[in-house]
Simulated scan of single mutants.
Amino acid sequence: MAIIITAFERSPDGGKGLARDTRVRWALEEAGQPYEVRLVSFLEMKEPAHLRLHPFGQIPTYEEGDLALFETGAIVLHIAERHAGLLSDDANARARAITWMFAAVNTVEPVILELVTARILEGDKPWTKERLPLVEDRVRHRLGQLSSRLGDADWLDGAFSAGDLMMVSVLLRLRASGILGEFPKLAAYVARGEARPAYERAFAAQLAVNAGKPAAG
């Protein structure tokens, strides 16, 4: 059964890898699974056909036979559990990798998205000048904790896992802010993730769509 994911017809970031379908593409590439991409416009995302797949009208979605999933973390976890390459055979190591997946989307990403909101969506608000430093400090605090835990290791818990895939994907959102560069160990960690051939293929596939050259995985 073919795997089909949905992605933006034109990504808001212009194909820089920040749209969440990149995470799913990356997971499929790491697992060596072919997939097809159905591109949707912002209008189509709010239509009944897409809402049946994603009740909140977002991307990505994942279809495989009778199975339809939404939410990036759930999709990546499904791929990791179904195929080799993203979770260890050791039960405890698998559990720790899944813990890092949840940490990425529940603990680290929210403060980063708050920063994105403060800078981009609320940049013209009268309270932004006072609020922005507070938001930036919350991001730095969380990154400091993560950097301390990572230390000099290549990955969060031994070998590369789905936990690293999700964490790197989340941290990539900070690149434009300059804050990631304040934490050299995390910047190097993200660079290692980007250097993985599977990530490079996922990034190139998304970029090709935004350059007008749709590419399947």
Rank of each mutant, 00 (worst) to 15 (best):
M1Q: 14
A2N: 11
I3D: 06
T6Q: 06
T6C: 06
S11G: 07
G17E: 09
L18Y: 09
L18K: 07
R23L: 15
W26P: 05
W26F: 12
A27R: 08
E30N: 07
E30L: 09
A31V: 13
A31E: 08
V37S: 14
V40H: 05
V40D: 08
L43Y: 06
E44R: 12
E47H: 07
A49M: 10
L51K: 12
L53T: 15
P55V: 08
G57N: 06
Q58F: 05
I59Y: 03
P60W: 04
E64V: 06
E64W: 07
D66G: 06
E71F: 04
T72D: 13
H78M: 11
H78D: 09
R82K: 15
H83S: 06
S88L: 12
D89T: 14
A91L: 13
A91D: 11
N92T: 12
N92G: 13
A93Y: 13
R96G: 01
W100G: 07
M101V: 15
F102W: 07
A103S: 07
V105R: 02
V105W: 00
N106G: 11
V108Y: 05
V108H: 03
E114A: 03
V116T: 08
T117Q: 09
I120L: 10
G123Y: 01
D124L: 09
D124K: 13
W127K: 02
T128Y: 01
E130M: 01
L132H: 04
E136N: 02
D137S: 05
R138W: 02
R140A: 01
R142A: 08
R142C: 03
L143K: 11
G144K: 12
Q145H: 12
L146E: 11
S147F: 01
R149H: 08
G151K: 08
D152A: 15
W155M: 15
L156I: 15
L156V: 15
F160T: 11
S161D: 10
S161V: 12
D164W: 03
L171R: 09
L174C: 00
S177N: 02
G181T: 06
F183D: 13
K185W: 00
A187F: 02
Y189I: 03
Y189M: 02
V190L: 06
V190M: 05
E194H: 04
A195E: 15
P197D: 09
Y199F: 14
Y199Q: 00
R201Q: 09
R201W: 06
A202V: 06
A204G: 06
A205I: 05
A208R: 05
A208P: 03
N210G: 09
A211K: 14
G212D: 10
G212N: 10
G212A: 09
A216R: 13
A216K: 13
G217N: 05
